[in-house]
């Protein structure tokens, strides 16, 4: 009975530790950014040592970040990704129609991502050809062209400096990532930019290596056009 064994693997103290960790997370969410370890420990009546251990674990896993002078805590980007994993509001009908159109034109899978801090979120997956490894496409930014585009964006302008935003100078528009093996999937990603040229969404086409290699220019052109079309709808 593997199921029971896996429960038994969680040792007696761990469920309580997990509950404490969630309580700490909740406390940071309710108290707001800047809450200190001492506040949390007093509020939850946890021993200081336990509180520090839990906080550092949450920092390690990036659910929580330390602010300013390292004494204050706030929710990290990873909590955002968690909360927004299933967005309450999907895409609008206009965006959906635009996506259907581009999918028809390109003939291979086309997915729409939104950029969320330093992360990607899947906004509209191609239902006919779903992503091969959805979790990896989102978490490993090096695994797909969409992720590489975001990495390049962060590189060219790490946190979005308003002065630089006036020009697309040095900003990536298209990233293409070829499969390493003939049977792998190649991807091409194009950014959708909002006002002030902020990268808000990424459209990514994914298809067989040879197919993509043969039609790279056409696919890119179509994606760029779709990005122009989608920009006002998405921002």
């Amino acid at each position: 009975m593997p199921r029971e064994r896996s429960v038994a693997d969680v040792n007696n103290n761990q469920p309580r530790a997990i509950a404490h960790a969630l309580a700490v997370l909740e406390e940071i969410a309710t108290a707001g950014p800047g809450v200190t370890a001492r506040d949390i420990s007093e509020r939850l009546q946890l021993s200081p040592a336990t509180t520090y251990r839990i906080l550092n674990l949450l920092v390690r896993e990036e659910y929580v970040v330390r602010l300013g002078d390292l004494s204050g805590f706030a929710l990290g980007g990873r909590v955002g990704a968690l909360a927004e994993a299933h967005p309450a509001v999907g895409i609008t009908r206009a965006v959906s129609a635009a996506m259907t159109e581009i999918r028809g034109r390109v003939g291979i899978a086309v997915h729409l991502f939104s950029v969320y801090g330093t992360r990607l979120r899947l906004l509209d997956e191609d239902a006919r050809h779903p992503l091969v490894d959805r979790a990896r496409s989102i978490t490993d930014l090096n695994a797909s062209a969409a992720g590489r585009l975001l990495l390049a964006e962060m590189d060219s302008d790490p946190d979005g400096d308003a002065q630089d935003r006036a020009s697309t100078h040095e900003r990536p528009t298209t990233v293409s990532l070829d499969a390493s093996s003939p049977r792998g999937t190649s991807t091409i990603a194009v950014g959708v930019r909002g006002p002030a040229l902020l990268l808000v969404n990424v459209i990514m086409a994914a298809g067989g290596r040879d197919y993509v290699a043969a039609r790279r220019e056409d696919i890119t052109k179509e994606l760029l056009r779709a990005a122009d079309h989608l920009a006002p709808l998405l921002s």
Partner: peptide
């Protein structure tokens, strides 16, 4: 390496599209 805005939960995705995103 201090925590900067991109490391936080984006305050509001809507706000990112305004004229003063950050």
């Amino acid at each position: 390496d201090q925590t900067s805005i991109p490391d936080l939960v984006p305050a509001d995705v809507e706000a990112r599209f305004g004229s003063t995103p950050h």
